[in-house]
Design a protein around this nucleic acid. Structure first.
Length: 426
RNA sequence: CGGGGAGUAGCGCAGUUUGGUAGCGCAUCUGGUUUGGGACCAGAGGGUCGCAGGUUCAAAUCCUGUCUCCCCGACCA
């Protein structure tokens, strides 16, 4: 059951002053709005409002994964060294792989990605070509002991990620699913309200031959990319050392001048081929009873990083501007008057809206108007409904659209429907 | 790992040069006045100055070591 939330009860410690540790907008605002708190370098706790956003992003990702036939699982974070020795990555991965021994001196690592675990798991179950293709995914914390964590959630060491792994009998089947994943990733970016570009990329540590990344455009992004309005895009890294960013380049597809920008890598799709199935001995029997190695793909979405990317792209001097799709609450009702009648009206309006499926938080705190307005802007709810004594006595309330700042005066009796309509238009 | 910066009250900072026993703003608590854009007045609480050694009559301040955090670079599914 969905309930009205109240600011007076909410654990949402906002900061008036800029945190000294943060440099970029998304990091500053995540801290100021009380979405996250740091435990150690690159390691964060998610507070109620931040975790609501994370869960909403996860639900969008789940919806898109389920829509293309993927099935959700949950894989272990703690993984035995032997699997990583099998794949060769125990030695190859380097110090980014966090390792430790258990009480019996057996070696383990914290999963930075889950190819080994899933390949091993599937190995016990796959017998026949009839079992293929299929795709499993999970949404889980990853740990990578990054050389230099920075920018809050943009490059953390522990982070929330969706990772999917697909298994196929043919390259064509892999290609087909890879395309479906890429299309789903485009839809995910759109539903998150991101300004993004898909680009050709390196496959790096994960390995494999073909890879695309989805870049949220942002000056604070760590990646550099080129793109063209015709649809072409590539990371400058993938273009190799001979790419000179100081001179203008033309699009290899249409010849138009390429744009050079910075971006945040929010997701990536890979074709792994038979790299992991071969090295870890994952086989199935084909129609002729002959053992074959499945083709594999893997597909990742940085969930916590996506949250930071959205803030990076959608904020102003006053705070965050959430898209309706992932706002922690869609509407904040600011109860300005302590007058019983006006407050009771605000509360009943909240109840009515909740019953219509709108997520509502009421600022019922005993604070001055300025404090409430400032927090509402900082927290970035798409709509602010202002219920004050003066307006209430005149039979009206005010609805402010966070993004544009425009205000609508609404009659008390029409409030529920008007708010619903304004929300639907955002 | 190389280069740079920083650890002093919950947060943001001053004090370190020139050692003398810790301060400001915000926040918190109490009382009062306020109440549509981060109020005002009066009072109060809160810090082994990151940690460990050392020098000294005396260390936030000087010396040595160490830990942590941030930025640039290297690195990065």
């Amino acid at each position: 059951m969905v309930r009205v939330a109240y600011m007076s009860k909410m654990y949402a410690p906002t900061l008036k002053e800029l945190p000294a540790e943060a440099e970029i907008a998304s990091h500053k605002l995540s801290l100021r709005a009380g979405l996250i708190r740091k435990s150690a370098s690159g390691i964060y706790s998610f507070l109620p409002l931040g975790y609501r956003v994370i869960k909403k992003i996860e639900d969008i990702v789940r919806d898109e994964m389920d829509a293309i036939g993927c099935q959700e699982v949950l894989l272990p974070i703690v993984q035995p060294a032997e699997l990583w020795r099998e794949s060769g990555r125990w030695d190859d991965y380097g110090p980014e792989l966090a390792r430790f021994n258990d009480r019996h001196e057996r070696e383990f690592c914290l999963g930075p990605t889950h190819e080994e675990i899933i390949t091993d798991m599937v190995k016990g179950e796959i017998r026949s070509y009839r079992n293929l293709p299929f795709t499993l995914y999970q949404i889980n914390m990853k740990f990578r002991d990054e050389v230099r964590p920075r920018f809050g959630l943009l490059r953390g060491r522990e982070f929330n990620m969706k990772d999917a792994y697909s298994f196929h009998t043919t390259q064509e089947s892999l290609q087909e699913h890879y395309d479906q994943q890429a299309a789903a990733y485009g839809r995910i970016c759109e539903r998150l309200g991101l300004d993004y570009r898909p680009v050709d990329a390196d496959s790096g540590q994960i390995g494999g031959d073909v890879s695309r990344e989805f870049m949220a455009l942002a000056d604070a992004g760590e990646a550099e990319l080129v793109y063209c309005d015709c649809g072409y895009g590539a990371t400058t890294e993938s273009l190799g050392e001979d790419f000179d960013p100081s001179i203008e380049h033309s699009c290899p597809k249409c010849g138009a001048p390429l744009k050079l920008v910075r971006g945040i890598e929010v997701s990536q799709v890979f074709q792994l081929g038979t790299k992991y199935s071969k090295v870890m001995g994952l086989t199935y029997q084909d129609e002729n009873g002959v053992d074959q190695f499945p083709f594999m793909g893997c597909y990742g979405v940085g969930v916590s990083r996506s949250m930071a990317a959205v803030i990076e792209q959608s904020h102003d001097d006053d705070g965050i501007i959430w898209p309706v799709s992932i706002a922690p609450y869609q509407v904040m009702i600011i109860a300005l008057s302590s007058d019983d009648e006006a407050f009771n009206y605000a509360d009943s309006l909240a109840q009515q809206l909740v019953e219509k499926g709108v997520e509502i938080v009421v600022d019922d705190r005993d604070e001055r108007a300025g404090v409430k307005f400032a927090d509402a802007d900082l927290l970035g709810f798409p709509l602010q409904v202002i219920v004050g004594k003066r307006g209430f006595e005149a039979g009206e309330i005010e609805v402010k659209i966070r993004k544009t700042g425009e205000k609508h005066v609404v009659a008390l009796d029409d409030a529920t429907t008007e708010i619903k309509q304004l929300l639907d238009r955002l």
